Amino acid sequence: MANKAKHLAEELSHRGPHRVLRGDLALVGLPGVVFTPTAGRGLPAIAFGHGWLQPPERYAGLLRHLASWGFVVAAPATQRGPLASHRLFAADLTTALDVCVGVRLGDGEISVDPGALGLAGHSVGGGCAVLAAAADSRVAAVATMAATQTKPFSTDAASRCRMPGLHLAAGRDLVAPTVGHAGLIASNWGGEAQLRLLPKANHLGFTEGRHWSNLVLPGKSEHGTQRLAKILLTAFFLTHLTETAKYRPLLAEDLKGAVIEREEDELVR
């Protein structure tokens, strides 16, 4: 089983079979970016929340990777200031899902299945994804990366999330300690939940390139951390937003650099 998981991880580390389009959410009234396959009907969609002070462009590689595997991925560029409203950002993530479902994308060649919606996010964007999921019964799966606390508390909102959850924690995170944030979200999760620890990752390891916020936040971009995030989020959303069962073995096994810390319920049945 471990060898099978390794082979599946290697497969998902590469771009998927779809060519990818990039669009501007501002055209429909919400600042941000959207990545889609070039065409497809009834596609799954994910709204992605950026980290504190971060632009969505710092996650372009991950968003493009998910789109290459058949997902429509929308990332609002709102609430980027130091005193951003978590409640409003959660609402913007919900609006991003509404846009994916209600607007025909890609010259009318792309549509989204309203029964295959997910949320994901990094840092405060992960916490806000939890807030949004707790209030939106449409959401079928949630993934967070180095999630931080929010107001209202994401750790409390987690108990109202009945859908599967995948939570990645960074072992060298000085902003969102494992036991303080991602661990509490996973332990309070109302549905199936898995917490994975990336021991060598830091808080900003999930982001790409350089940004002025590196001057005020500890950590830096890490290729290995981004690779693991691409593998795990792609496997998780393919499993829970599509009828694909192929990647379930990967979700059940430790990966090099990403070990399963705790499962409140069995994520893979």
Results as ranks from 00 to 15, higher is better:
residue 242 T to W: 08
residue 179 V to Q: 11
residue 209 G to H: 05
residue 46 I to A: 02
residue 233 L to F: 05
residue 180 G to H: 13
residue 201 A to D: 04
residue 201 A to L: 09
residue 163 M to A: 12
residue 102 G to M: 05
residue 260 I to C: 04
residue 130 V to S: 01
residue 31 P to N: 00
residue 170 A to I: 05
residue 265 D to H: 15
residue 247 Y to Q: 09
residue 95 T to L: 13
residue 130 V to M: 04
residue 90 A to S: 10
residue 18 H to V: 10
residue 130 V to N: 03
residue 196 R to M: 10
residue 16 G to K: 02
residue 90 A to L: 00
residue 234 T to Y: 00
residue 69 W to L: 12
residue 244 T to E: 15
residue 90 A to I: 04
residue 61 G to C: 06
residue 6 K to L: 14
residue 10 E to Y: 11
residue 163 M to S: 08
residue 125 G to K: 01
residue 173 D to F: 06
residue 209 G to P: 01
residue 175 V to T: 14
residue 82 P to R: 03
residue 218 P to E: 03
residue 231 I to M: 05
residue 61 G to E: 11
residue 248 R to A: 15
residue 77 A to W: 05
residue 73 V to K: 04
residue 256 K to S: 14
residue 16 G to N: 08
residue 177 P to R: 12
residue 134 A to P: 03
residue 89 F to S: 02
residue 255 L to A: 02
residue 82 P to F: 05
residue 129 A to L: 01
residue 32 G to K: 07
residue 31 P to G: 04
residue 219 G to L: 08
residue 253 E to T: 08
residue 73 V to T: 05
residue 116 A to L: 03
residue 201 A to T: 10
residue 91 A to T: 09
residue 267 L to G: 05
residue 186 A to G: 10
residue 206 F to V: 14
residue 198 L to H: 02
residue 23 G to K: 06
residue 69 W to K: 12
residue 214 N to L: 15
residue 64 R to K: 13
residue 237 F to K: 12
residue 188 N to F: 01
residue 214 N to D: 15
residue 144 T to Y: 05
residue 253 E to R: 11
residue 151 K to G: 11
residue 110 I to P: 01
residue 167 H to M: 12
residue 200 K to V: 12
residue 65 H to V: 08
residue 98 D to R: 13
residue 66 L to T: 07
residue 141 A to W: 08
residue 139 V to Y: 00
residue 27 L to C: 04
residue 222 E to C: 04
residue 86 H to Y: 13
residue 80 R to Y: 00
residue 234 T to A: 03
residue 27 L to H: 11
residue 93 L to Y: 03
residue 227 R to D: 13
residue 46 I to T: 02
residue 195 L to F: 09
residue 217 L to N: 02
residue 215 L to P: 06
residue 198 L to V: 10
residue 146 A to R: 04
residue 73 V to E: 02
residue 26 A to G: 15
residue 197 L to H: 03
residue 252 A to E: 13
residue 155 T to D: 12
residue 214 N to T: 15
residue 180 G to A: 15
residue 53 L to N: 01
residue 223 H to S: 14
residue 90 A to C: 06
residue 221 S to T: 12
residue 27 L to G: 00
residue 61 G to L: 07
residue 198 L to T: 03
residue 110 I to C: 00
residue 77 A to N: 10
residue 154 S to H: 09
residue 42 G to M: 07
residue 187 S to D: 14
residue 169 A to L: 07
residue 90 A to Y: 03
residue 75 A to R: 00
residue 37 P to M: 10
residue 128 C to I: 03
residue 110 I to G: 01
residue 227 R to W: 11
residue 139 V to E: 03
residue 143 A to Y: 04
residue 152 P to Q: 08
residue 233 L to A: 08
residue 60 A to W: 04
residue 142 V to S: 02
residue 63 L to W: 02
residue 221 S to A: 14
residue 243 E to F: 13
residue 220 K to F: 13
residue 253 E to L: 01
residue 217 L to P: 05
residue 250 L to C: 08
residue 77 A to Q: 05
residue 112 V to Q: 04
residue 78 T to C: 04
residue 189 W to L: 09
residue 91 A to Y: 02
residue 71 F to S: 01
residue 239 T to K: 05
residue 64 R to Q: 14
residue 127 G to N: 06
residue 89 F to E: 00
residue 224 G to S: 13
residue 196 R to Y: 10
residue 138 R to S: 09
residue 236 F to N: 01
